[in-house]
Design a protein around this nucleic acid. Structure first.
Lengths: 118, 118
DNA sequence: TTAACATTTCGATAATTGGCAAAATATAGG
DNA sequence: CCTATATTTTGCCAATTATCGAAATGTTAA
C-alpha cells in the first residue's frame, strides 16, 4: 500500500468537494447510473462524469456496464484499507444533513427510463 | 456537532494539501513555532502562517503565545470527535514516507534561536 | 446502417487556492 | 520610546479545479 503524502493528499482531495460527498452518500444507499445522479445534483452530465472518474480512480467506487448505462456503486472490496475506513466513517459523520436526506428521498423515486433521454 | 456536507468538505479540504499534512505530522512529534516550521518546509513565513490558520480554524491544532513566539501544537482535546479520529488515523496512514521521515529528523535539530532572526 | 440515447473526452472559462512580498501588528529588550 | 524579531494580514499573481457545452465514443434497437 502507498502511504505517501502525495497519495494521501489525493485521497483527501477526492473527498473535499460537496458534490462528490453527495455522490458517495447516494451510492451508499443504492447503485446509480450517471444520468440518475445528474438528475439529483442538477449538474451537467459531463461534470458528473468527471466527479465519478475521480472517485473511481481513488478507489472509492467501481463501475459496471449495463448496456447503454454505466452503473456506479461503492467499492465492495477496496484493496486500500484507508478507503474502507473512510467509507464506513462517512456513514456516521454525515447523516443528518438536510441535503443528504433530500438526496436519499429523490433517488428512491428516480427511474432511469423516465429521467434519462429528454 | 455539525455534520453538514459543507462542514465535512471544509475538514477534508484542510487535509488535502501536502504542506498541511507535513505540518500535522511534524506537530505530532513536537510543538513548533512558525519560523521553525517555515525552515523545514522552505516556504515564505506568510504562507506557513496561512496554512496554520486553516488547521487552527478547522480544529486540528491550537496555538499558545510564548513571548514573541507563537507555538502551535496538536489540539489535545478536540470538541469534534471527527478531528480526534482523523488525527489518530494519520498516525498510521502516513509514516514511512521519505519526506515525513526527513522532516522529523530536521525538527529534532532545529533551534528557534538559531533558525529564526536572519 | 441509421437513429436515439448514455457516457466520456475535449476546450474554454470562472472561481478557488497556494504562493510570495510588503505592510501591519505584537512583543521583548535596550 | 526605539529597534529588532516573530507573526499575521493584505494585495497580487500563477496554478488548479469545477463547471459547461460541444464533439467523440459506445450501445441498443428499429
Amino acid at each position: 500500500m502507498t502511504t505517501s503524502i502525495k497519495e494521501n493528499t489525493r485521497l483527501f482531495k477526492a473527498l473535499s468537494d460537496p458534490n462528490r460527498l453527495r455522490i458517495l452518500k447516494m451510492l451508499q444507499s443504492k447503485s446509480l447510473c450517471v444520468c440518475e445522479i445528474t438528475e439529483v445534483l442538477s449538474l451537467a452530465t459531463s461534470t458528473v462524469s468527471k466527479h465519478l472518474s475521480i472517485l473511481r480512480d481513488t478507489g472509492f467506487i467501481i463501475e459496471e456496464k449495463d448496456g447503454k448505462w454505466v452503473n456506479y456503486m461503492i467499492n465492495p472490496k477496496p484493496s486500500d484499507p484507508r478507503i474502507s475506513s473512510v467509507l464506513s466513517t462517512l456513514d456516521f459523520w454525515i447523516s443528518d444533513d438536510n441535503l443528504i436526506i433530500s438526496d436519499k428521498q429523490k433517488i428512491q423515486k428516480v427511474d432511469r427510463n423516465e429521467v434519462c433521454g429528454r
